[in-house]
Amino acid sequence: MTAQGVSRRERVRQATLAEIRAAARRLLIEQGSQAVTINAVAREMGMSGPALYHYFAGHEELVGAVTADFFRELTQAMETARDACPPGEHAARLLAACRAMRSWAVSHRAEFGWVFASPITAERRPDSPRELAGRDFEQVFLEEIAELWEHRPFPVPDPGELPASIREQLRAYAASTGMGLPVEAIHVFMSCWIRLYGLLCMEVLNQLDFVYSDMEPVFEECLREIAPRLGLDYETAAGPAVSPPRGRSARGGPGS
């Protein structure tokens, strides 16, 4: 064992695992998701298919590991952009994270499609690398929303106005996050997320090319619509704020 407690054999194994995941990523980018098979990755590595099973139990485990890499890369980009803004500057931090997400997505279209636009066939084990990395990605937004709700609650509907089925689903999700957010706040957050995520998927999958050759202003328009729903001022990447219309906050005071 080395002074750091990691043997040379383990270092070599970790390096090989990283090389395998990089080979899978190359195949994804160059040939598409269908090309990422155990045998194809093994050929890229100069080894046999059976030899690759010494590192990954099968295709699903390989897919999960590569997906976890993409999640971590995207999460880091979003956290870096968010944390470049001062704590408490909720509008700047949320908008920076959203813009970083789009920037990563449009410059890594194959990876984004692999993570978000492909059906998930692997078993969703809570402790799998993919699920753990996915939750870290999710936390980038949830943590900021929870802090915003605590210090500056945004306008929300009365819970009784939501259909019972939606309330129950949101209640289960809220409990799973451990953030202490009420269902009505989760409802507003999810409405914003669906709008943002749906637009980004359409852009990355080239579904709006028949109209738009430049999607950035369309994305910014989406952010401009979302910000007031969270009681925030919309801010351009380097410009002044635009105040949202005032409404009533979740706790009865004026939304601000």
Rank of each mutant, 00 (worst) to 15 (best):
L132N: 05
F154D: 01
E184S: 03
V156A: 07
E19A: 15
T67E: 14
P240Y: 02
P244K: 00
V188R: 00
S107W: 08
E221F: 12
G49K: 06
M215P: 04
G88N: 06
R9W: 11
R11G: 09
P119N: 03
R246E: 13
V218A: 10
A65G: 05
G64T: 04
I120Q: 05
L208G: 06
E144H: 05
G247V: 09
E138L: 10
W193Q: 12
C98K: 05
S118F: 10
L27N: 02
H151T: 15
V204R: 00
Q169M: 13
A91N: 05
F71A: 09
E111S: 09
F56N: 00
C85W: 04
S256M: 08
L162W: 12
P217K: 00
N39M: 10
P182R: 01
V218P: 08
V183Y: 00
D209R: 07
A57H: 04
G239M: 10
V63Y: 04
L52H: 00
A250W: 02
V204C: 03
L230Y: 01
A97M: 03
A23C: 15
M45D: 10
E168V: 10
W149S: 04
S107K: 12
R102I: 10
R11Q: 15
P228V: 01
S48M: 08
D127T: 13
S213K: 09
A77M: 15
P244C: 05
R82G: 03
W193P: 05
L74Y: 02
P182H: 00
S48Y: 06
E19W: 08
M78G: 03
W149F: 12
P254Y: 04
A81M: 08
S256G: 07
F56T: 00
S256E: 09
R102E: 09
E44Q: 14
Q14V: 11
C201T: 14
A96I: 05
A15I: 13
F116C: 13
G178M: 07
R99P: 14
M179R: 06
A146E: 02
Y212G: 02
M179E: 07
L27D: 00
E89M: 09
L196Q: 11
L230A: 08
P217L: 04
F141I: 11
Y53G: 04
T121H: 12
P163D: 02
G64P: 03
D233V: 06
P86K: 02
T67M: 11
G239D: 10
D158E: 09
V211G: 05
S48L: 08
L142Y: 06
N206M: 09
P182Q: 01
A40F: 12
V242N: 03
A122K: 01
E184K: 02
C85H: 07
